[in-house]
Design a protein around this nucleic acid. Structure first.
Lengths: 296, 296
DNA sequence: TTACGGTTTTTTATAAATAAAATACATTCA
DNA sequence: TGAATGTATTTTATTTATAAAAAACCGTAA
């Protein structure tokens, strides 16, 4: 079927967001300006303009573009139409592989998975190839893929690598009082304090914050290999925890406090205290992760 | 054009190797046995048998398979026919990206590269996606790829990561006197001593040995993430050094001696000496790598 | 005369097509 | 009867096709 026009649809919705802040009758900028704002090509920008014109939202002739009325909800493309197939597929795939209870050494067939997820084999192939780096699947040439299993071994190897990297990143962060990551750490403190103040139901937001915290720590080392690994891990941990929910709120609150016990000394320049607290947190994180796979 | 039959051709050549050791007139085993030996499916095994029968190398009817004559060179498929397109393409791609003098931030177009390498865009896409993990290229969604450059920064980040991992792996290797990697270390010592005894022209074999040594060290940690990283690095370093040839033989001989200064204490259980020597080697390796990118 | 808009060309994202290779099923002969 | 063979089906590797999106090109009006 080739491409759908998701980029166009997403851009059209974004343009409507932009224009709903303007008065009807106001003149719009040039095509190039719209491209900048929406981060799209002129081809797509022009398609958007002509679409909005056909909806009667604006009048467009040559360089004159006048807003006729504010866009309404009915004008927008529905959210399921704007997600790119690749993005949608990736999310579905992660859900499937990390939340379906696949046994270790299970065979994964590209064609079967494509049918299950309702996407093309080529896309499944992309997903599996990319996911291979996470160490959970491997390819048997000319044959199927194998799921290696979210086993205790896997968790141990992941924790080892994570601790190696994050410990080093933390060392660098603490060593430099003018480290460029510090402003973002201030913001991070605020987010943690806010979340801690809210009630248990808000704890569902923790996994995302946890991932951001650890990615920020990794980013402090300014090493693309650290970042790459942190990114991989955050996906795995995110889906794994969504699925394993026991003691969730208690565990999450405790983790937020541990994060703060790291963040605050960093901001106040008490390095050794920060590093001790971080060691403590790495230890807890390891325990939590291992506990969640203990049954295997 | 879909697939060529490389698997079949490679298997046919392998089968001929196998049969050339047998007397004409001898009976061959079952189809299933041939599958085992050649690591192929029965479909392919049967195709091979029928091909060899049509060449008059054997007679095949039902379960009776008799070797008629020894295969000769003319029976074989030429080597360029047996390599899989994907493998051939990968090698070409690595040559291209690591030995062509691409400037940092150069644009890479899938379609253009496909034309240059004479392969399909889909294959180029696979190669770039896979290579992305090495941190040298990045994707601009809906647009081209960007070569980030084999810069000083890149070399520094790579060395940092490498040292972090290999230092830890070495610690583990030294901590366990019965480590399962030790037998392979004995073999490694032998290979190093042999190479050192040969003349300068043999030094072209060093990069491959170097990669093996470092991969073995990483393997000692028994962590799939270490292995993955070691593998990536070995590709980069391999191609980079092939291209940067100054002081080659001197540098290589020195590196062999440094490797031996690590291997021998390990085998003799002198841990701290091994680790000191390894630190020294990591330092030299870093210097060498940085020197090779100094011009940028 | 130059920045902007109209048009054409190139490139990417995705799916579909095709032959090879693997696997599953049916059949036959020791 | 069951292990090996013959046959059919499924799955993978690779290329090709197609529409969307980006980029390049060219003309025109402020």
């Amino acid at each position: 079927m080739s491409r759908q026009n998701q980029t166009f649809k997403a851009a059209a919705n974004q343009a409507m967001d932009l224009f709903s802040g303007l008065e009807p009758g106001s003149e719009l900028g040039t095509e190039a300006e719209l491209c900048e704002q929406l981060e799209i090509s002129r081809t797509t920008a022009r398609n958007v303009l002509s679409h909005l014109a056909s909806l009667g939202i604006l009048e467009w002739e040559g360089r004159r573009k006048v807003l006729l009325r504010a866009p309404v909800v009915a004008d927008r493309f529905p959210p399921e139409d704007v997600a790119l197939p690749a993005e949608r597929a990736e999310q579905q795939f992660h859900e499937w592989i990390l939340r379906t209870d696949l046994p270790p050494n299970a065979q994964i067939h590209e064609s079967e998975l494509a049918r299950q997820l309702g996407i093309s084999v080529a896309l499944v192939r992309d997903l599996l190839q990319n996911f291979r780096v996470s160490g959970l699947v491997e390819k048997n040439p000319n044959k199927h893929w194998t799921f290696r299993g979210f086993t205790r071994d896997y968790a141990l190897e992941m924790c080892d690598m994570r601790e190696l990297i994050e410990r080093e990143a933390m060392r660098r962060l603490c060593a430099d009082p003018d480290h460029p990551a510090l402003p973002r750490m201030v913001e991070m403190e605020r987010l943690h304090i806010n979340l801690l103040a809210r009630d248990d139901s808000a704890m569902t937001e923790f996994p995302a914050l946890d991932a951001r915290f650890h990615r920020l720590v990794c980013a402090a080392a300014r090493n693309r290999f650290y970042d790459e690994f942190a990114h991989r891990i955050s996906i795995i941990v995110h889906y794994h925890y969504q699925w394993n929910k026991r003691d969730e709120t208690v565990r999450n609150r405790e983790a937020i406090r541990e994060h703060l016990a790291v963040i605050q000394p960093i901001l106040q320049g008490r390095s050794s205290e920060a590093r001790d607290a971080f060691e403590q947190h790495l230890h807890t994180a390891r325990e939590t992760l291992l506990a969640s796979v203990n049954w295997s």
